[in-house]
């Protein structure tokens, strides 16, 4: 936890990892250090208080939430909102769990498919020299640049034409391209750092090209695969615009759109909405916290070169 931005590929022993931490200036330089602490304190409050208030609100009854001045701490703490959302027996809970499952299913599938497609592509970009390689690579990267909305209309028409509107297939197909450029870029970095002799040795040892890749190269790039997978999963989990446009039947909605629906149906049920927001954030936050270093790597790779 204390030295999180490390080169996770250190196990290949060929990457140069910068000294993870540094202790500068032994003597206290009062002013600057206090300024630093001030900034951190401010940012901590700025970041945390809205989330704290979300949790506090979610523990109130509807009546308690709609009071002025607000109850800083609920007079009467209730888990009613969570119970309602998570019990499959009542209508609200049933719906919410359906959204949750839809989100989960779409995110997992698009993540897996994304990795399956990105791995060979990144490997090819790293290992082979073929005409047009550079151009292809940059066109893949450029995907990062384009706004979702630009693609929305043609994709909508295309999905309509393919008969995929209001199916999860349309979302999976779209989402897997979100992570793709980044995954390819990130994984290419990993493969660049794996000596080609390892594969050659494996092939001489009796492996086919694929076996050499599968048994030797892939395990060495697993940190990269994990990193790209988390990134892709979080992106898919949080995606809203396409889900909003492509889906319309209630049982197909994913969480972000479901949340909006929930809001328009129960316009004043703020505690319920806060509880739903909270539940919706749990998977990604847990995933992020557990695999933090991989996620950070996914974000920063490529932009930072030593």
């Amino acid at each position: 936890m204390s030295t999180p931005i490390r080169n996770t590929a250190a196990m290949t022993a060929t990457t140069t990892s910068p000294a993870p931490t540094r202790r500068r200036s032994k003597k206290p330089i009062g002013g600057w250090r206090w300024a630093g602490r001030g900034i951190l304190a401010f940012l901590l409050l700025f970041t945390a208080l809205p989330m704290v208030w979300m949790v506090i609100t979610s523990l109130k009854t509807q009546l308690a939430a709609l009071q002025y001045p607000p109850q800083w701490w609920p007079n009467e703490v209730t888990f009613e909102n969570y119970v309602q959302l998570l019990s499959p027996n009542n209508a609200v809970g049933h719906e919410f769990l359906q959204y949750f499952w839809n989100s989960f299913y779409v995110s997992i599938l698009s993540t897996i498919l994304g990795v399956v497609i990105a791995v060979p592509a990144a490997y090819a970009f790293s290992r082979f020299r073929f005409p047009g390689r550079q151009a292809l690579f940059f066109s893949v990267l450029l995907r990062n640049m384009f706004p979702a909305v630009v693609f929305l209309m043609p994709l909508f028409l295309m999905m309509k034409w393919l008969g995929l509107v209001n199916t999860h297939g349309s979302l999976i197909l779209t989402y897997l391209t979100f992570g793709l450029p980044l995954s390819i870029w990130l994984l290419k970095g990993f493969y660049d750092n794996i000596p080609i002799q390892l594969e050659q040795a494996a092939r001489i040892d009796g492996a086919t090209r694929f076996q050499a890749f599968f048994h030797i190269v892939m395990p060495l790039s697993s940190p990269g695969i994990i990193a790209t997978a988390i990134y892709a999963f979080i992106m898919a989990w949080n995606e809203y615009v396409y889900a909003l446009t492509f889906l319309n039947s209630k049982d197909k909605l994913t969480l972000p759109v479901g949340l909006q629906r929930f809001f328009s149906e129960y316009a004043t049920n703020w505690p319920g909405l806060m509880a739903a927001s909270f539940i919706m954030s749990v998977p990604v936050v847990v995933l992020f916290l557990v695999l933090q270093k991989y996620f950070v790597r996914a974000l920063t790779e490529g932009a930072v070169k030593s």
């Binding site: 022993a13 050659q200 040795a201 030797i216």
Partner: peptide
């Protein structure tokens, strides 16, 4: 084949 840098599988 024995490689110059040995090419042992690091994992």
């Amino acid at each position: 084949m024995v490689f110059q840098n040995y090419a042992l599988y690091p994992n």
